[in-house]
Design a protein around this nucleic acid. Structure first.
Length: 109
DNA sequence: ACCTTGACCACAA
DNA sequence: CTTGTGGCCAAGG
């Protein structure tokens, strides 16, 4: 449910994600802000439904970690593209996290 | 017009 | 670190 394939929102989101260069990432919130909306969740839903055709691994959450159920797949892409990663400490449940401070990208850069 | 669902975000304890 | 709470937006029922 939610979001029609013809929606401008979907087209815009996919366009932005597709424009993210290798080794760079954006957060759902940043994409939403770029769209002029604060609907970070809507962006997530677009990814969930239409992300199959787009480099979704370059879209991460605000904390620097990829989608909860896709961290393993995303990691392979990150290694292949040379995305700056930060190895997590042994005491944390997170296997890794993206160096968001260095890898964050803005459209038109 | 109201309620439910989400690959979310930020803050507080 | 973990939970909880509230807020955000779009579409379906």
């Amino acid at each position: 449910m939610a979001l029609s394939p013809e929606s401008e929102f979907v087209a815009h989101v996919l366009d932005i994600v597709d424009a993210i260069p290798p080794g760079r990432v954006m957060t759902y919130g940043d994409i939403a802000a770029t769209l002029g909306s604060r609907g970070a969740r809507v962006v997530g839903q677009v990814m969930a439904r239409y992300g199959s055709d787009v480099p979704w691994w370059r879209v991460i959450r605000a904390g620097g970690h990829p989608p909860v159920c896709h961290e393993n797949r995303a990691l392979e892409h990150y290694r292949a593209e040379g995305t700056p990663l930060v190895p997590a400490s042994v005491a944390t449940t997170d296997a890794y996290r993206v160096d968001y401070a260095s890898a964050r990208w803005s459209p038109g850069e």
